[in-house]
C-alpha cells in the first residue's frame, strides 16, 4: 500500500505459533504467522474452517485457554509487547486498544443484563467515568451504529433484539473505548444476506470514521473483497498468500487461492460448473512436513515435500509456493 513508512504499525506479529496440547494429540493450529498492520488498514484473513484464522485472531490478544494453549513468537500491539504483559496489563489492553466482535451476536451478550448495562460497564471499567457519562456515551455509540430509538434499546435485553441489531450493539460495545485495532471474527457469518451487507457497510464506515485498523476473519471471498485493503489467505495454520485485495483477485498465485476463487459463485457463472477443491482440510494434529496444501494440489511435485519459503513477488505480494518463482 502507499501508507507513509513513518507511521508505526498497529500490529506487528512475528512468527506467531499456537498449539493446543491435549492428552492424546497436539493440535498445531497456527504455525508461524508474521505480518504487520498499519493504522487504518483492513486486513482480511481468508480461509476454510479449521485453518487457524480465529485462533490467530485470539492469539493477538492472548485470549486462548492458558492451560492448554502454547503460544510463541512476538506480538506487538501499538508498540507494546503483548507476550510480556501481565494479566492486569492485558486486561487494560483489551477493550481499550483492541476491540473484538464475535461471530454469534446471539451468545456474545450476557442474557441477564441489558445491552446498555453491558456497554456502560465496559466504559466505566476502562475510563473510570461516572455512570451517567458512560450512559451518554453508550447512547451516542448506539446512535453511531445506526440503532433506531437507542434510548429504548439501552434498556433492552439481548434476546429482545434481532440478529442484525444485536451485531450492531456488539460493534458498539467493541468500539466503546475507541480502540485503534478492531478484531472481527466472522461477524457476518451468522446473519442474513441482506443484513450482512448492512453490517459490512457499517463496519467500513466506522473504520474510516474512527481511523481504526481492522483484522477481519472470514471464509467468504465476497465479504473479503467488500471490506479488505489487504487479504491474507490462510491454510494449515500459515499465511500461504498475502497481498492487496486487487492483486489477489486479479492474479492469485497460490493454487489454494486460485481454487478458493474458482469455487466462489459469481453472477456470471450460471451454467458453468463450479470448480471445487478436492479433498478436505488437513488434520492439524498431523500436518505434512512440506507444503500443507500439497496433498490436495493439482500441481504437486516432489519439491513440495520441503516447506515452501515465502516468496515476495512484489513488495506487498507474498506467496508460499515453489511454483511461484
Amino acid at each position: 500500500m502507499t501508507a507513509p513508512a513513518v507511521a508505526e504499525p498497529v500490529v506487528r506479529a512475528e512468527d506467531v505459533a499456537v498449539s493446543f496440547v491435549g492428552r492424546d494429540a497436539t493440535v498445531n493450529a497456527v504455525n508461524g504467522v508474521s505480518f504487520t498492520l498499519d493504522p487504518g488498514e483492513v486486513l482480511c484473513i481468508l480461509g476454510e474452517s479449521g485453518s487457524g484464522k480465529s485462533v490467530t485472531l485470539r492469539a493477538l490478544m492472548r485470549l486462548l485457554p492458558f492451560r492448554r494453549a502454547r503460544l510463541s513468537g512476538r506480538i506487538e500491539i501499538a508498540g507494546l509487547d503483548v507476550m510480556a504483559m501481565s494479566d492486569r496489563a492485558l486486561a487494560d489492553l483489551r477493550g481499550t486498544e483492541v476491540g473484538m466482535i464475535f461471530q454469534e451476536p446471539m451468545v456474545a451478550f450476557d442474557p441477564v443484563y441489558t445491552v446498555g448495562r453491558q456497554i456502560t460497564e465496559t466504559i466505566v471499567r476502562h475510563e473510570g467515568v461516572s455512570q451517567e457519562q458512560a450512559r451518554r456515551r453508550a447512547l451516542d455509540l448506539l446512535d453511531r451504529v445506526r440503532i433506531p430509538s437507542p434510548e429504548r434499546r439501552l434498556r433492552a435485553y439481548p434476546h429482545e433484539l434481532s440478529g442484525g441489531m444485536r451485531q450492531r450493539a456488539m460493534i458498539a460495545l467493541a468500539l466503546s473505548c475507541q480502540p485503534s485495532l478492531l478484531l472481527a471474527d466472522e461477524p457476518t457469518t451468522a446473519l442474513d444476506a441482506t443484513v450482512q451487507i448492512q453490517i459490512l457497510l457499517l463496519l467500513r464506515e466506522l473504520q474510516r470514521e474512527f481511523g481504526m485498523a481492522v483484522i477481519f476473519v472470514t471464509h467468504d471471498v465476497g465479504v473479503a473483497v467488500e471490506i479488505a485493503d489487504r487479504i491474507a489467505v490462510m491454510y494449515g495454520g500459515r499465511f500461504v498468500e498475502t497481498g492487496p485485495v486487487r492483486e489477489i483477485m486479479r492474479n492469485p498465485r497460490h493454487p489454494y487461492t486460485q481454487g478458493l476463487l474458482a469455487s466462489t459463485v459469481h453472477s456470471a457463472s450460471r451454467g458453468q460448473t463450479l470448480e471445487a477443491i478436492p479433498g478436505s482440510p488437513p488434520d492439524m494434529t498431523r500436518l505434512p512436513p512440506g507444503c500443507a496444501f500439497a496433498p490436495r494440489c493439482r500441481f504437486a511435485e516432489p519439491g513440495c515435500e520441503t516447506p515452501p519459503a515465502a516468496i515476495q513477488l512484489s513488495p506487498h505480494h507474498m506467496v508460499r509456493c515453489i511454483r511461484a518463482t
Binding site: 486486561a91 456474545a108 451478550f109 450476557d110
Partner: peptide
C-alpha cells in the same frame, strides 16, 4: 465456555469481575 464470557474477557474484564458479574448472575 460461552461466548459472552469470552466477549467480556475481550473487552478487558478480569477473572474476578467475570465471576462476579457474568458467571454468578447466570
Amino acid at each position: 465456555s460461552l461466548d459472552y464470557v469470552e466477549a467480556a474477557r475481550a473487552s478487558g474484564a478480569g477473572s474476578l469481575t467475570i465471576i462476579r458479574v457474568h458467571v454468578l448472575s447466570n
